[in-house]
Amino acid sequence: MRADFIFEKTTKVFAFLSVAIVSLMGFLLLMESWPSIQQSGFLFLIKKVWDPVIHDYGALPFVYGTLVSSGLALIMAIPLSLGVAIFLSELAPYYLRRPIAFLVELLAAIPSVIYGLWGLFYLVPLLREKVEPFFIDRFGFLPFFEGPPYGIGMLPAAILLAIMIIPIISSISRDVMQAVPQHQREAALALGATRWETTRVAVLRYGKSGIFGAIFLGLGRALGETMAVTMVIGNRPDISLSLFAPSHTMASVIANEFAEASSDLYLSALAEIGLVLFLVTFLVNMIARLLVMKTAKPFAAV
């Protein structure tokens, strides 16, 4: 009895500790960013200028950079990840499923600084010498391909993010697809559906919300990813439509400028960016979990 009492209380403390840590983190960020919030209020989020020298702080370039790099990453990662998930859950022969799933999930275990190094040493030169000149040459009239081929910039950041979120999206959406009951597939097959139609009608439709959840979890990861992005994005607080222009994200500006923030207001402005990022990722992850939970038990059994 006594042992159980201690057991229950200790685990309870641990459980509440994690809740306390998250709340404390949010509270401290709010405290730290208070001076900046008082200074510029909501304008902070929509102001384009970031000039610490004259104490003018606007977060829009970072919000823009974070949203665009994550959005581009999703555009690249979603078809790839769903392809991987569909192959592993529906088509691959059984002896291939485990090894491939394992290798794909291993992608998530690579430290992000390694991705950054790979980006810097391989991807950026490739983009600078081959890919970007090609696009500038042929499609330079479009605003998305304007400017000189720096190599570093929005494009490599988005590509790295895409590679980094593929394992999350593919492994969770594979789990979701495997949770689709076999009788749903058989219902479609028995009507004369092809394999693709069965996947579309029985599997993807049934697991839709869970797959959206997987995508949101990937988005959550992309929004907060710091190291790899900081290494290749170019770190310039400009808003440019061009994929080739150096840019900045909320996470990368904090990592980059925190050490050199020379005044209290500067620090406070960075903390406020952190607060915004904290809230956004919190929200995105919450939506994601709710969606995944919804497919785990979506429809009442007979």
């Binding site: 009951p181 009507l191 009608v201 029985a202 439709r205 049934y206």
Partner: peptide
């Protein structure tokens, strides 16, 4: 399978579809 239809042990309508959509699922395929 379009000539040889099948009914299963457990009723397995498609849960994301309406009654009408369920009945016409094969035709729409």
């Amino acid at each position: 399978r379009r000539r040889v239809g099948m009914i299963f042990q457990r009723p397995n309508p498609f849960p994301t579809m309406s009654i009408l959509e369920n009945v016409t699922a094969g035709l729409r395929l």
